[in-house]
Design a protein around this nucleic acid. Structure first.
Lengths: 156, 156
DNA sequence: CAAAAATAGTTGTTATACTAATTATTTCAA
DNA sequence: TTGAAATAATTAGTATAACAACTATTTTTG
């Protein structure tokens, strides 16, 4: 197939849009990180994401957390290490399958989540609050198309 | 101000959209990383971004590269270290200001860029090719609004 | 001009991400 | 049912990212 003008246009446009996507995601992460730091949260945004997942479903295995958060197994091992050091979670061996842990929130973990939830909600409000619903919906739809374009082969 | 239904809706929607944004940006990065690895490129996507910036403007200082790529100074120091080790760039002291380096592409650097450009273009095509122009434009516009929402206070 | 402030770059520490290799356990299959 | 394959988690190595502290210059300013 020849390299048509339309194709060249897409290639050029996609250089910019890839840059904008990366840039915005990075800034978003910084924004939440700074909000947590300003609140003396004692955890990172990635640790928050794991805590929040456990808040939805306590006792997940590490691989289940990995899948839910789109992080990989070694990363989850280390995040859980840190959360256990801080006594926000604990590892409980799964009697059904002794290769696994059930990761459980401690009372201190639940307390920390409750304390930080307003911080996170404020940060979300600041990031997205000024956008019309339909723009957010459109964004999510488009991002998901891109995500799925890449999922087919990259999930090997 | 009371916590209206509309505000709650935004907060809930933004939990999802933040997740989708992060997830898509991460997958996008993996996609380019894997494309480079498959081509035995010998560089990472972050190193590519720096090379590409130098291809546009050779001889930039490290801080200029940092600004252009939205990376920070220590990160650029380390990326340039690696690119110089691979002999794709070289540091030349700026005679006008001896605190600075001019970072210059070597002939090997130009060659590598030329070799990898088709790989990158293919990867871009795969990521964005299926999307109508107007969706991409809309995405970029929305992402930029979010980016600017966060830039005001986070760029201290 | 000399001291202070600003700037460019480096280094160190901690955290996350990816890959590969390793251990322990469980499941599958001949 | 035992040996092979698969699975859950860990560990190690390299790269990126944020932050802080530091050195070497340059600019400001008093």
């Amino acid at each position: 197939m020849a390299n048509t003008a339309a194709q060249k246009d897409i290639v050029k446009k996609s250089e910019i849009s890839g840059f904008i996507l990366e840039r915005t995601a990075k800034r978003m992460k910084q924004h939440f990180q700074q909000s947590l730091a300003a609140a003396a949260a004692g955890i990172t945004i990635d640790q928050w994401v794991v805590l929040q997942e456990l808040d939805k479903q306590n006792g997940l295995s590490q691989l289940e957390i990995a899948k839910a958060t789109f992080k990989d197994a070694p990363t989850i091992t280390r995040i859980i290490d840190l959360l256990c050091q801080k006594e926000l979670t604990q590892r409980v061996i799964d009697d059904q399958d002794r290769r696994r842990f059930k990761i459980q929130l401690t009372p201190k973990g639940y307390k920390r989540i409750a304390e930080l939830m307003p911080v996170i909600k404020d940060a979300r409000q600041k990031a997205w609050g000024g956008l019309p619903d339909k723009d957010i919906d459109h964004l999510v739809k488009t991002l998901n198309i891109v995500f799925n374009n890449l999922s087919s082969e990259d999930t090997k």
